[in-house]
Nucleic acid binder design. Structure first.
Length: 420
RNA sequence: GGGGGAAUGUCCCGAGCGGCAAAGGGGGCGGACUGUAAAUCCGCUGGCUAUGCCUUCGUAGGUUCGAGUCCUACUUCCCCCA
């Protein structure tokens, strides 16, 4: 596969930026892509109210698909989430309520508009929900039309099932059916929209290939599969977690500033790879940035943070985030654009204990943790290390544009702003 | 159907003679060193109105001054026999 030289823009971009892990037929796919005849989809689970950076690779795949003259489909898993994908899990998922799934779906939709141009013609992106057809399936019809194409022998041999069986972990019948539904999705999308490519993370290979098979048996045109590598950090950790939890894409769950910070803190060894995957900067520029050594590599990290944040939150928000970071870390002053938490002015007037202040700000989970952090020298008020856990905050401490800057560690800062 | 074993700090794994807020890891957080990096070293890693009080070892009872530890029943999981 490494010897294959793609001719299409799509596969050239995917290859040189490191998006390709496995493909069912690179040459066939290349031919279709050259003519702008690809209609590719990726399914997104509705298990959380927002996508997180872990899905960025997938989103970028759709983005490039469109940028190179093909049509992307973002498929919401409103139906499949009701069943639950057992892939990569050795315990059953808990079954989500329909209301939760609906809420999650609406939250997840938000992120896409920045990356894709939606519409009804040509290369316009499409968003659809597999609940639309899956919930209408009739059990007997489904068994006769779809079920007959599936071999239980083969299903049992699939990794997602085999692992559970080997470890003698429970796999319920509902989960066992997941792969059938995902395969069926692909066929439906093929029939409705001429979809001929499904992409996904490398763990989805089995599910995607099932779709290919089902399509062949049900008489669709040739379908293709393309998976992306699992993105881990150079240090081996799974990507997407930070001090303050998962890196969500929705701004109400993770501010643009925090998103910018996430990329700014990328490990040296990951910078070049991430620039290729998570920005649309030209390859020549990426090569220049990747060549930076030592402390200079920080310039590359800023470029990564700027570009990635611009993609998700827009240029204005990215500029603010970068400026906030510059003031905070390089000038050491409190930018009024830092994440802010408000307190009642009256409470502050009466004197607010520092322990409770840090809990209110969300920097520590409990007053106990705040106490321990103070012992370890980890908390600061207006930049000054806090040593007295009994200290009280008063309006006189609101010296940064009328707010108090609370910090935990070197990187996490919150403005506590009194309001009436 | 019969016999044996197991469930531990709500992140995970895991030790635990009747005196236990409970060993040890991993992970996470903080500190030092740096470049807002990695690696390394050090500290912390139930809650609170805090020299005390409250809640934690599958669930519910019991024995005991005192139970994660002993007894009984139940739930779930694993192993062996049929």
């Amino acid at each position: 596969m490494s010897s294959f030289t793609p001719k299409s823009d799509f596969l050239q971009v995917m290859t040189e930026r490191g998006f390709i892990h496995q493909c069912s037929d690179l040459a066939g796919l290349d031919a279709l892509a050259s003519g702008g005849k690809l209609v590719g989809y990726i399914g997104f689970d509705c298990t959380a109210p927002s996508l997180h950076v872990g899905s960025m690779v997938q989103i970028m795949c759709l983005h490039w698909l469109q940028q190179t003259g093909n049509r992307p489909i973002a498929l919401m898993g409103g139906g499949t989430t009701r069943v639950g994908d057992p892939t990569g899990r050795d315990e059953s998922r808990k079954i989500l309520t329909l209301e939760d799934i609906e809420r999650n779906k609406n939250g997840i939709k938000q992120a896409f508009s920045r990356f894709l141009t939606f519409g009804d013609t040509g290369t316009d992106a499409l968003m659809t929900d597999n609940a639309e057809w899956l919930t209408k399936l009739n059990w007997i019809e489904m068994l006769r039309d779809i079920g007959k194409h599936f071999s239980v022998n083969r299903m049992l041999a699939m990794d997602s099932v085999k692992l559970r069986l080997e470890r003698e972990h429970e796999m319920s019948f509902i989960e066992f059916n997941y792969m059938i539904l995902q395969a069926y999705d692909y066929v439906v999308l093929s029939q409705r929209y001429g979809c001929n490519l499904q992409m996904g993370g490398s763990d989805q290979w089995g599910n995607i290939v099932n779709g290919l098979d089902l399509g062949r048996r049900m008489g669709t045109p040739q379908l293709y599969a393309l998976t992306t590598p699992l993105i881990t950090l150079a240090s081996g950790a799974k990507m997407g977690k930070t001090a303050s939890g998962a890196v969500w894409l929705n701004p109400d769950m993770k501010s643009p500033y925090e998103y910018w910070q996430f990329w700014r803190n990328t490990e040296d060894a990951d910078v070049a790879r991430f620039l290729k995957l998570f920005t649309t900067l030209p390859m020549s520029e990426i090569e220049r940035l990747a060549a930076l050594q030592g402390a200079e590599i920080n310039e590359a990290k800023k470029a990564l943070a700027d570009a990635a944040t611009t993609l998700l939150h827009g240029p204005a928000a990215a500029r603010v985030a970068a400026e906030t970071a510059r003031k905070t870390f390089e000038d050491g002053i409190a930018a009024d654009t830092l994440p802010t938490v408000t307190v009642a002015g009256a409470d502050l007037m009466a004197g607010l204990g520092v322990l409770n202040a840090f809990v209110t700000a969300g920097l520590t989970a409990s007053t106990g943790e705040a106490r321990r952090q103070i012992k370890g020298g980890g908390l600061r008020v207006n930049g000054i290390v806090l040593t007295n856990e009994h200290a009280m905050l008063t309006p006189a401490d609101a010296i940064n544009e009328g707010a108090i800057k609370l910090s935990m560690g070197k990187k996490r800062h919150i403005l506590l702003r009194p309001v009436d």
